[in-house]
């Protein structure tokens, strides 16, 4: 077919529309996964945590977390007798290689795993000026790497210190609740390797999830409830000294 000026003018809009569909890319990777049927959360059972660091190592391996940065980490608390407002907290290398023995000089010692609280009303998504961080319809706070400017507003806004600026991509990075795993029917890497079941992934929209029974029958707390972030990481048996 000879391309005349007239034919070219007719073909161009068609080509533009086709190109737009090419640019849009393929839709979701997990075709059977429905965004509206889940509302993800996590349960952390502090009395079960042994501070082995398996979760921290697994997270780093699963998500290619840069050395020296953490999407999840473990803190060891030491509360001397009545000094509940002055706990000693340490987290050597995020607890990645466990914790050195601590002299048992009385008081209370325990481990607290930390991660992104997947807040339903998260401060980090509210401050993002470009819509690079957002909460998905299934309740996970994610960062769109290709949209993030690296302005660090979200890092300042997070009351839990769960975000960092990746030295590789210079964009904000955080726990994705292993979104690439949970949408494929797997659990998160940290929950997969936790040897004592101290971490459990929970789907609040699934009426058969054991989380509902657990929440009914246990004394459960979230971190910094006074900040009204709508945190979805629930801590069982959490001491009042935990910040």
């Amino acid at each position: 077919m000879e391309i005349t000026r007239r034919r070219l003018l007719v073909l161009l809009p068609g080509a533009a529309v086709a190109w737009k569909f090419v640019l849009a890319g393929t839709p979701e990777a997990a075709p059977n996964y429905k965004l509206t049927e889940h509302w993800w959360a996590m349960l952390i059972d502090i009395p079960k945590c042994i501070g082995c660091g398996s979760c921290v190592r697994a997270c780093a391996e699963e998500n290619d977390v840069p050395e020296g940065y953490f999407r999840t980490w473990i803190e060891r608390y030491h509360v001397a007798d009545w000094k509940i407002e002055r706990p000693e907290v340490e987290s050597p290398d995020g607890g990645k290689n466990g914790f050195p023995p601590h002299a048992d000089d009385g008081g209370k010692n325990f481990f607290v795993p930390k991660l992104c609280n997947q807040c339903a009303d998260s401060p980090c998504t509210q401050v993002c000026p470009v819509g690079a961080t957002f909460i998905t319809p299934d309740g996970v706070v994610l960062v769109d790497k290709s949209y993030c400017l690296g302005c660090r507003y979200c890092i300042q806004a997070c009351p839990y210190g769960c975000r960092f600026l990746s030295p590789k991509t210079h964009t904000a990075e955080k726990c994705t609740l292993c979104y690439h795993r949970i949408t494929k029917g797997l659990t998160t890497a940290c929950c997969e390797v936790c040897p004592t079941g101290a971490r459990q992934l929970a789907d609040l929209k699934n009426p058969k999830d054991p989380i509902h029974e657990f929440l009914r029958t246990h004394t459960v707390q979230v971190l910094k409830p006074h900040m009204a972030t709508g945190s979805k990481v629930f801590y069982n048996g959490m001491d009042g000294s935990v910040r």
């Binding site: 890319g25 819509g131 957002f134 494929k184 797997l186 390797v193």
Partner: peptide
């Protein structure tokens, strides 16, 4: 982007991109 505003004030296609990463465990 085409999918901006699909679910909210963000690029809807980002959800699929993040979900399609390969697993290690």
């Amino acid at each position: 982007p085409h999918s901006f505003g699909q679910y909210g004030h963000y690029r809807g296609a980002a959800i699929g991109e993040i979900a399609s990463r390969p697993v290690a465990f």
